[in-house]
Computed example of a mutant assay.
Amino acid sequence: ILAAGYDAVTGVAIILVGAGVGVLGSTINPFATVIAANAAGIPFTDGIVLRFILLIGGLLICIAYVMRYAHRVKADPSRSVVSKQWAAHRKLFLQGHDEEIHSASLTTIQIISLIIFGLTFAVMIWGVSSQGWWMARMGALFFGAAIVIGLIARLGEKKLTGSFVDGARDLLGVALVVGLARGIVVIMEQGMIADTILHSAETSLGGLPELAFINLMFWIEVGMSFFVPSSSGLAVLSMPILAPLADFANVGRDLVVTAYQSANGLVNLINPTFAVVVGGLAIGRVSYDRWLAFIWPLLLILTVFITVVISVGTLL
């Protein structure tokens, strides 16, 4: 990304925004949509058309936003939100090889390595979705893939272990940040902050008309997502309480699920207690305030888009 003339924020945005919009408009996400639908007592396929609209529309909005920013930065690096770190980022990530990287082409070994890397993710998706894999098995999978790639690339024992240690060193700070973020979540959970919010939500949602109900529920889920960033955790916590209230407002429970996951995906683009955000920013060497400077207009656009979609869905 940097060798192509863009900045670190562009690289981080490709990952975080892409993942975020995938959650926001998820259709069959087993950790969000499926768990929430089960907790709400409905098939996860209910409301899938509306979620497809959210996914495609949100994806197009995010692609346009990130590409517009990237083109602007490439044309004028001073317009980057991390322009003051431009030289430092290039020195850190390119290590003086930017011209070589720019003119280089992929070798056969590099192509094979990329294929193995892609297959690793395919195996991970299969394992998580159908075999019950979680962190330990995923970690073992990536560790094994790294060894295989190192052997294929003929790095040698010294260079392979050295590269592994260098990578682990870069992630040490990320691990500390993630641990701190998780500590904040634990404090919130043990302090029953989420339970207090849910109780207030239950009393405030009763008797509201359809449009007011679904939009207020969306904002309640937005607030809850700051305290419970886990999509599955939030689903299990909020759906059994909020979904039955939809029956009294004549709102489909599938809309409640859609509002929940769109709120969670939106908030987790900036949530400082979400490991993916703090970890991604730490790896990309992008400070949180610079990320907010980049992302806040997109958040406003997505918020308007989501509220319009769920409101129209309520009226149909």
Rank of each mutant, 00 (worst) to 15 (best):
A194C: 01
G284P: 02
A37Q: 03
P77Y: 10
F44I: 01
R72S: 14
A293H: 09
I184L: 15
G179L: 05
K84P: 00
G132L: 02
A8L: 05
I42G: 04
Y65P: 01
G144H: 06
L245I: 05
R169A: 11
H89N: 13
G58A: 03
R137H: 10
D166T: 12
G313R: 02
G223S: 08
V308I: 15
Q110S: 11
Q95D: 13
T203W: 11
Y260G: 00
R90C: 09
L59I: 00
W86I: 01
A201Q: 02
D254E: 12
V177Y: 11
L242T: 06
G162N: 06
I1R: 06
F274W: 12
A212K: 03
G127C: 11
T307C: 13
Y6V: 03
G223D: 06
M192I: 00
M239E: 08
W296P: 00
V66D: 04
V49F: 14
I53L: 14
I14R: 05
A175T: 12
T33H: 02
V251Q: 03
A235V: 08
R290Y: 02
L141R: 07
S129T: 13
S311A: 11
V276Y: 07
T258H: 03
F142G: 04
T33Y: 01
R169Q: 09
L315I: 14
L300I: 15
V81C: 07
I283L: 13
E202R: 04
G132S: 07
L24I: 08
P229N: 05
F226K: 05
G284A: 15
F294N: 04
W296F: 11
G179C: 08
G280N: 05
D166H: 12
L54H: 05
L299N: 04
I53C: 09
H199P: 00
G5C: 06
